[in-house]
């Protein structure tokens, strides 16, 4: 029998190839397009797109709108998701995996289908024709809630009970225990959840288009417009880069990159 033997390095080759083809090269292409311009069929280096973004009222308004929608959606997700994750994680209920499954199950249904169904539902309650912003936020929350619950659940479930017991032994009432021990210890999950919800809700224009009747423009929509109908890949790439920088900065600010945070490791998987 011939023995197959791969070294660790060799095992990395498929992924390295993948990384190169689908991450590194596209990123370089986006960078290239963002800082160039087509003048008389020739591509020239330019900062015009960058300057244009920060001087255009329409684009800055779109940025602001995306921020608003993303912030509100994330806040609502957190407010709904935290109690659920807490109850699920701390309950002694033996079949809690089943409960968790119930929250995740909607994710198994095609996303466009869910949003289309939600559109019909909103029409039924009479919100569809008038409440574009509200509908969009409802859609985002509906869509991204599981992404908030899961990391929260993972961190809260791993929480060592002895900390809480110690806190109560030292005289903390239920609220103090929660505010001083449970919540701070669940921060990695909170941050991970916020990142998981905030980023996509700035760009998921299927939701804003379907439920907001195309009345709301968010950054993802703008990027799409530049690549398809406006036929200007340079500006489209620039907006993508700006979005990338914003995400990077948010991650940096929330400590999403902190390596030492071993507690967060499991949570960051989500």
């Amino acid at each position: 029998m011939m023995k197959l033997h791969f070294s660790r390095k060799q095992l990395c080759i498929p992924y390295a190839l993948f990384l190169l083809l689908f991450v590194v090269i596209p990123m370089l292409l986006i960078l290239f397009y963002a800082f160039t311009e087509t003048v008389d069929d020739k591509i020239v280096f330019s900062f015009a797109n960058f300057a244009n973004f920060f001087t255009s009222t329409a684009k800055l308004s779109t940025l602001l709108m995306s921020f608003t929608i993303a912030i509100i959606s994330t806040a609502i997700c957190l407010l709904i998701g935290y109690p659920i994750a807490y109850i699920l994680a701390r309950s002694k209920f033996r079949k809690k995996n089943v409960l968790l499954m119930l929250f995740i199950m909607p994710m198994w249904i095609n996303f466009v289908l869910r949003i289309t169904a939600l559109r019909e539902l909103l029409d039924l309650v009479g919100l569809l024709s008038s409440q574009n912003y509200l509908n969009t936020i409802i859609g985002m929350v509906y869509d991204f809630l599981p992404f908030m619950i899961l990391p929260l659940y993972t961190t809260l479930e791993k929480l060592d009970n002895s900390y809480l017991e110690a806190a109560s032994d030292l005289g903390g009432n239920k609220f103090t225990v929660f505010a001083r021990v449970t919540f701070p210890l669940s921060m990695p999950g909170v941050i991970s959840g916020i990142t998981m919800v905030f980023m996509p809700s700035m760009t998921n224009y299927v939701v804003s288009d379907t439920l907001g009747n195309f009345n709301i423009t968010i950054l993802g929509k703008l990027i799409n417009e530049y690549f398809t109908t406006y036929d200007n890949w340079h500006m489209g790439s620039m907006i993508s880069i700006i979005l990338l920088v914003i995400i990077f900065l948010t991650m940096l600010a929330t400590g999403g990159f902190k390596d030492s945070n071993t507690d967060a490791r499991g949570a960051n998987l989500w």
């Binding site: 255009s56 009222t57 329409a58 684009k59 308004s61 779109t62 602001l64 709108m65 608003t68 912030i71 509100i72 912003y133 423009t217 703008l222 417009e225 406006y230």
Partner: peptide
């Protein structure tokens, strides 16, 4: 682009 993106509601600034 301006037709589609403007105006944004005041509460957005407040948020």
């Amino acid at each position: 682009e301006e037709v589609k993106g403007l105006p944004i509601p005041v509460w957005s600034y407040i948020v």
